[in-house]
């Protein structure tokens, strides 16, 4: 399966253990021009999200019908929408929603998926078989479809989108961590820890999980990008954030009604999604290369 292939690849990544290794990873990441571009893009979005009120004098929600459908100008950098709201302002505030959805939904996915994957890989046997069959069922749904199913049950809204996208991410983390745990638990030092009488919980937390951190970090970077895309898709379908929230997918969806007269209403929110997703993907690629000793040697 697609998830399996990608996950298998990431599972094999080592985790930097000491400061010197962390520095080494950072040095390789810094040399990767594309990863640095991705980092720069994300920093811009982060600053926009934090300092949105300082960067614009407009209100993202307040309606001003006298200013509707203005084309981009020095006064309104990206024009105004059908209710006279400044598009640039709404995109700035929208970055808060997208970043929050990306980060929170991935955290939800991790909080559920990582422990299940770790226990499944560590204990194996029937428990592992049972968990893996459940994961098989969840993976039977293309990611966004699973998120749509969950939203259908929970109802529309940003919070429910976070939960839905988070749940749709669970199988990816479970498979990833299970794979990493399976690789680590056969190591000699785990057998030694067991022989010393150290408890399972401590072995998992102190000796196994630190070795799975690298793959989890890389996967999470990609997963945030995917979560942002899925959430924007749900917003576009009318199942995510509701008006008047400045969510990019919903903005784009409403802007479609005016593509003949005001295509700035669809172009810029879409570009914002693209750049944010690209930023996370570029860093993910960079981190994967930086953590992969084969790739480091190659460079």
């Amino acid at each position: 399966m697609k998830v399996d292939n990608k996950v298998d690849e990431i599972c094999e990544l080592p985790t930097p253990k000491r400061d010197t290794e962390l520095r080494q990873v950072w040095r390789h990441l810094r040399r990767n021009r594309l990863a640095m571009i991705g980092l720069g893009v994300l920093l811009v979005f982060l600053l926009c999200a934090i300092f949105a009120p300082l960067l614009t004098g407009y209100d993202p929600i307040k309606i001003d019908l006298g200013n509707a459908f203005k084309l981009p100008s020095t006064e309104n950098l990206l024009g105004t929408d059908w209710q006279g709201r400044d598009v640039f302002t709404r995109i700035l505030y929208g970055s808060r929603i997208s970043l929050a959805i990306g980060l929170i939904s991935v955290t939800i996915g991790m909080l559920i998926g990582v422990p299940i994957g770790a226990l499944s890989g560590y204990y194996g046997g029937r428990f592992d078989l049972f968990i893996q069959r459940i994961i098989d069922i969840l993976i039977a749904f293309p990611g966004i479809l699973l998120a749509i199913v969950v939203v259908t049950v929970l109802g529309v809204g940003v919070e429910n989108v976070m939960i839905a996208v988070g749940i749709a991410s669970v199988p990816i983390y479970t498979r990833l961590v299970r794979g990493s745990v399976l690789a680590v638990k056969e190591q000699g030092y785990i057998a030694a820890a067991k022989a010393l009488g150290i408890g399972d919980f401590r072995i998992i937390m102190r000796h196994i999980m630190p070795n799975c951190l690298g793959p989890i970090i890389v996967q999470s970077t990609f997963q945030i990008a995917t979560a942002i895309l899925w959430a924007a898709g749900l917003g576009f379908l009318g199942l995510g954030a509701q008006p008047p929230d400045p969510e990019w997918g919903a903005m784009l969806s409403k802007g479609r009604e005016y593509i003949r007269t005001a295509h700035h209403l669809t172009t810029y929110p879409g570009l914002a999604i693209l750049f944010m997703v690209l930023g996370f993907n570029l860093i993910g690629d960079g981190l994967r290369d930086a953590l992969d000793p084969r790739s480091r040697k190659h460079k």
Partner: peptide
């Protein structure tokens, strides 16, 4: 290809 993977499919459609 990098841009193609990152671009939302619904936005591409509208463009």
């Amino acid at each position: 290809a990098l841009v193609g993977v990152a671009a939302p499919v619904f936005w591409l459609g509208v463009m």
